[in-house]
């Protein structure tokens, strides 16, 4: 599993304050802690409070780059914010994200190519959030064909089926899981699949348990990557164990430690 740590996000008070006061240490500590606990990549998001996200994302990227070369996911719905982050990040970057709308795809796919970045494609469009499996697949196909048209390899594409909170869209959970499997057979080479995990438990009273159960099930459906909290030890333990059961890693008594050393 490609673990993308979600904690460098201006929606958290500590990061919002660090951005405001240009406190490098808080951001760098958050980056290193996530990596130590198994993150393969770090999401970078200035958050809703940032008044000048084009400048703030650049600062965040530069500060994190001082301590790690790991992949950075530049997280914004605004292409100009993403481009500002791309300029600062160097190599190992994923753009997070484009929707299935052509005007966005036509902006962001060329950017991904120009900066040799991966691209997360949300199966969502200006018409709204998909309501079932078929709508998700249709939006995924739109994204994949735009990539093909612009000669962007689907190996570098991460499709997100859009995880809804279980207390809002309980009837859609099975469709979301099945979409993960269907996305893999949409093209050759297969696109990768990713979810923003914590959305599934938004507004519920058992967030960690719901996150971890959904993730375990999604792993069984072939999920490649997840944006999650790597400091949630029970969550990462469950993830490692799910992959062990699918024979992706060799068992030994210290398999949890062994995985985190990779």
């Amino acid at each position: 599993m490609f673990i993308i740590g979600e904690l460098i996000n201006g929606m958290y008070a500590n990061i919002a304050a660090a951005i405001k006061e240009k406190d490098k240490a808080v951001v760098q500590k958050c980056a290193l802690e996530q990596i130590k606990n198994g993150a393969d990549a770090l999401d970078i998001n200035c958050g809703p409070a940032s008044k000048q996200p084009v400048i703030d994302i650049q600062w965040l990227v530069e500060v994190v780059r001082e301590v790690t070369d790991k992949t950075l996911c530049l997280d914004s719905s605004k292409p100009q914010v993403i481009e500002s982050g791309l300029k600062a990040a160097g190599s190992n970057i994923i753009i997070n994200s484009t929707t299935a709308d052509l005007e966005k795809l036509n902006l962001l796919i060329p950017l991904a190519k120009k900066y040799n970045a991966g691209l997360i494609g949300l199966t969502i469009s200006a018409k709204g959030i998909p309501q079932n499996r078929d709508q998700r697949l249709e939006l995924a196909a739109t994204i994949v064909s735009a990539c093909a048209d612009q000669d962007f390899s689907t190996e570098n594409l991460f499709l997100d089926p859009i995880v809804m909170p279980v207390n809002v869209a309980q009837a859609q959970m099975r469709d979301i899981l099945e979409s993960i499997r269907e996305f893999k057979i949409i093209s050759e080479p297969s696109p990768k699949t990713v979810v923003g995990l914590s959305n599934v438990s938004q507004g519920t009273s058992a967030r960690n348990l719901i996150n971890r159960t959904f993730l375990t099930m999604a792993v069984a459906y072939g999920l490649d990557a997840a944006i999650l909290d790597p400091l949630d030890k029970d969550l990462v333990d469950a993830l490692i164990t799910a992959e062990l059961i699918l024979n992706k890693n060799i068992y030994c008594d210290s398999y949890l430690d062994a995985y985190r050393r990779k």
Binding site: I250, Y251, C252, D253, S254, D257, A258
Partner: peptide
């Protein structure tokens, strides 16, 4: 499994 464990 033991080979891996012993290495660790």
């Amino acid at each position: 499994n033991i080979a891996k464990q012993l290495n660790i």
